[in-house]
Write a protein that binds this DNA or RNA. Structure first.
Length: 196
DNA sequence: ATAGCGATTGACT
DNA sequence: GTCAATCGCTATA
């Protein structure tokens, strides 16, 4: 069931390319020896330079420091005081970039995810950035986690990439001109919107 | 020291 | 469709 995990070389590339290539991969969260996992079906790319929507746009701060560090690490932040968002850092060390994981299709540990989310509805389990972190119990204690070596969080090769939908990013007020949201077309767990 | 503001979600009209 | 919840980060003083 397990396969090779993605290492830092995978992430050390142009962020939108990494984002697109992450579709179909298996995001794995280990808790107490149990695998919670899902196939990545929706992502967004955020770069530091020339991307006003990025947390790194105005430069390095304590919060976004991980985005400036090594590729292949987890960048986790709290949004709206409620929801944690999971990002995977990209680009070479020193260059800011990250991919926001917006939705996954649940595969392993679905019962546990439903307990974490207090829902019995499969469709609403992981179809949003705040939902999947709640289902996988991802919070800021995982900020900076090295995906290449972590026993708690990593990404596996997964299944081949399928038909990809490309649209503008959602939930932002600037940088909307970049079509840096990628999703598995037709997948029922994609959070919102439709590829144009 | 503190005001302003979200890379969202769920409940409600 | 609208809207409130809630808190840490950031900028400004």
């Amino acid at each position: 069931m397990s396969s090779a995990r993605l290492g830092h070389r995978f992430f050390e590339r142009y962020t939108p390319d990494v984002a697109r290539d992450l579709l179909g991969r298996a995001l794995v969260r280990m808790i107490g020896g149990e695998r919670l996992s899902g196939e990545i079906v929706e992502v967004e790319a955020y770069r530091g330079d020339r991307d006003p929507a990025s947390h790194a746009y105005a430069g390095r701060t304590p919060r976004n420091a991980v985005m400036f560090g090594e590729p292949g690490h987890a960048y986790v932040y709290l949004a709206y005081g409620f929801h944690h968002c999971l990002n995977l850092t990209t680009e070479r060390s020193g260059a800011p970039g990250a991919v926001l994981v917006r939705a996954i299709e649940p595969v392993e540990g679905i019962r546990e995810m439903m307990r974490n989310r207090r829902t019995r509805t499969l469709e609403s389990l992981t179809n949003g950035p705040g939902k999947l972190t709640q289902a996988l119990r991802i919070d800021r204690t995982l900020n900076g986690e090295d995906l290449a070596t972590s026993p708690r969080l990593f990404v596996e090769t997964g299944s081949p990439v399928r038909v990809v939908g490309i649209t503008h990013r959602v939930g932002i007020r600037s940088g909307t001109r970049f079509n840096w949201r990628f999703s598995v077309e037709g997948n029922r767990f994609v959070s919102k919107g439709k590829p144009s």
